[in-house]
Write a protein that binds this DNA or RNA. Structure first.
Lengths: 244, 244
DNA sequence: GCAAAAGTGTTGTCCTTACACCCATGC
DNA sequence: GCATGGGTGTAAGGACAACACTTTTGC
């Protein structure tokens, strides 16, 4: 607020790095994971009942403190692994939330992470505290500021999935185009034109025809494709173009 | 790393929120500002000589701890204000950096912020520690992990300026299209076609002709425009399209 | 009159959108 | 044979890239 005294105090002299850091106020830092999953054509988010007194009826993101020896990334992977058994999955940092009174137990700064996994392919390793998947369009009674964190991550995901091939992590190794389109429609919350969707992905040229077909579907079976990551990498463009 | 003991410990019972937060490890949290400025057709970044022993020859971003009563956003605005006198400027959170040994004085988690200001229109309020503007393409001897933070923010800015009208904050109220194009070329690091650039911005339809012309230029004077924020807001589109 | 940048249009190409019909399978 | 989704093509419109000449001003 008043610039002079602080800048004078901070920049008068060289300082010892350890002393400086010792002088800083220390704060609890946590990570919270917004883990999205997809099942039956619906986008869902993984939540637990809060385990804090007075908040046990509210839904909470999966979170944990970060320890002195790990990065926030490592903490996020640790939590994801503990709760879902998953380790080979994307997990991206979205944003840091730091409102002083955001946590009822005192000052806690949290870093939000976002992930997207295939529900059908991973059993939850622990279902304490009512851990389960909630359709994203359900009314949810959120704990603390987790509604805001969730919404930020959901918006981030909708933008991200249009620019990066995240959708494939929701699908089995081999998938039909209908399944792929279902993922996009669920995440973006809108219907897409089937013919244009197919054209789009075929011209992007990283889907590989496996030669196999769907089995046991109550309609004409579709071809199964795999996502060729190498082709995706080599075909990436780096210039997007000005477009507000 | 080993999931079982921790999840058992954390989720056995309801807990008191204050006790839980008290049990968390506490860490120093800082913000670092990557403040970009534009002058003479060049993009520059505002740096100081580190004021830490053994690091006084290296260049450092403007940073500070966050206190118990402020958000990281508030801390970033505070630092920006102290160092540049500016307050009516965009400042966006980019990313949190948390490698345990990133700071020589001990564990410090930092949140990087990015801003873009008009150098010619703001005097620096304090030039201690060799505070000054460095062209972004200069070789810079960075302190700590500030090179990584800078590069992340620079990439973020290049993407961001293509999707949001940030460039106008670098220009006077009234500006010519040549000036606007100069900003984009400096930030993106490439030449753009003048005719296509003009077409692009005219069809986006939020530039307003002031009726005035440039003065004192050694060539045919150009028209001066203003950025009409209201028109920009109302014309924004929300659907971008899948495009990897 | 020369240097420097302003201002302006067209064409070809590509991408996007909207839209309709027949086909293969399970039941 | 009916329901369900698979698979396909085209035409119109819009965006983008490439490209050259005339005009206005300061010096």
């Amino acid at each position: 607020m008043n610039a002079e005294p602080l800048s004078k105090q901070l920049f008068s002299d060289t300082k010892n790095a350890s002393q400086l850091v010792r002088s800083y106020q220390k704060i609890a830092v946590t990570i919270d994971c917004v883990i999205f999953g997809y099942q039956d054509g619906q986008l869902k988010v993984l939540l637990i009942k809060s385990d804090l007194e007075n908040y046990t009826e509210q839904w909470s993101l999966l979170g944990n403190e970060i320890t002195h020896t790990e990065t926030t990334d490592e903490a996020a992977y640790r939590v994801l692994k503990q709760r879902t058994g998953l380790s080979d999955v994307f997990l991206d940092q979205v944003k840091c939330f730091s409102t002083p009174d955001r946590h009822p137990g005192g000052r806690v700064v949290t870093v939000a992470y976002c992930s997207l996994i295939n529900i059908a392919h991973h059993q939850l390793t622990c279902t304490d505290n009512d851990l389960h998947w909630h359709p994203v369009q359900d009314e949810i009674d959120w704990a603390f500021d987790h509604k805001e964190i969730f919404e930020t991550c959901y918006g981030w995901l909708q933008k991200r999935i249009q620019e990066h091939p995240l959708g494939f992590s929701l699908l089995p190794e081999k998938f039909s185009l209908r399944e792929l389109q279902g993922v996009y429609e669920a995440i973006l919350g809108m219907k897409l034109d089937r013919r244009n969707f197919r054209k789009k992905f075929f011209t992007m040229d990283f889907l590989e025809d496996t030669g196999e077909m769907e089995l046991n579907v109550a309609h004409r079976p579709g071809k199964l494709y795999t996502f060729n990551y190498k082709k995706y990498e080599s075909g990436k463009k780096d210039w997007v173009g000005i477009d507000f």
